[in-house]
Amino acid sequence: MDHSAPATRHAARAREGGEFQSPSLERLVRALSRLPGLGRKSATRIALDLLREDAASPHELAESLAEARANVRHCGRCGAITEADPCAICTSPSREPHQLCVVASPVDVLPFEKAGFYRGRYFVLGRLLSPLDGVRAEDLPFARLAARVEQDGIGEMILALDASVEGEATSLYIQRMFSGRDLRLSRLATGIPVGGALAYTDEATLHRAFQFRRDF
């Protein structure tokens, strides 16, 4: 298609609420703009780029999408993103079976695995408590978590949830759930990033780091 018309003009028309003269393109833009973080302007830029004559085949994109859709699933034991169920982490004999790291989202597993220091297993909650978004405890897999702790004889649980009000409330819920049990429960520390300059640390982080300072 002719791409000589400046994208900005399309964007300008899009801003005015106008539509493309091509219904197919319009449909593509609308589908793209439903994706998280994409407005109509960005969706239009991506759509036009995909349709450029010299662009890599859009079929490749379509195929990889279909393939991923067919193969990717959540691990039935821990909730991580995987193609094999149960996932490699859950089945690996070299992982410490009695240590469990609780995270909010499947992507939160990645930084741990990239760093490589953690040798235990995971449990993905999928979301955090947030009544404002209609999320209550019964929407989280707490029953599965309790069963997992029981079956695997978990001795230590590390709560690695966001340092937000929602993350804290979810941690507190779990704390009450397991209070009185023979289980070591801990929460990730918050503080100054390693290699970070003190002068550029924001006040909230600095305050936390100060509050939870350690004997030295």
């Binding site: 408590l129 009544p131 209550r136 405890a137 019964e138 009000v165 804290e168 409330a169 979810t170 507190l172 819920y173 704390q175 009450r176």
Partner: peptide, 15 residues
């Protein structure tokens, strides 16, 4: 389960 949800949020408020 409402009581348990409430406890978590009351704990968070108290914090």
């Amino acid at each position: 389960g409402l009581r348990d949800d409430l406890r978590a949020w009351s704990d968070e408020m108290a914090l």
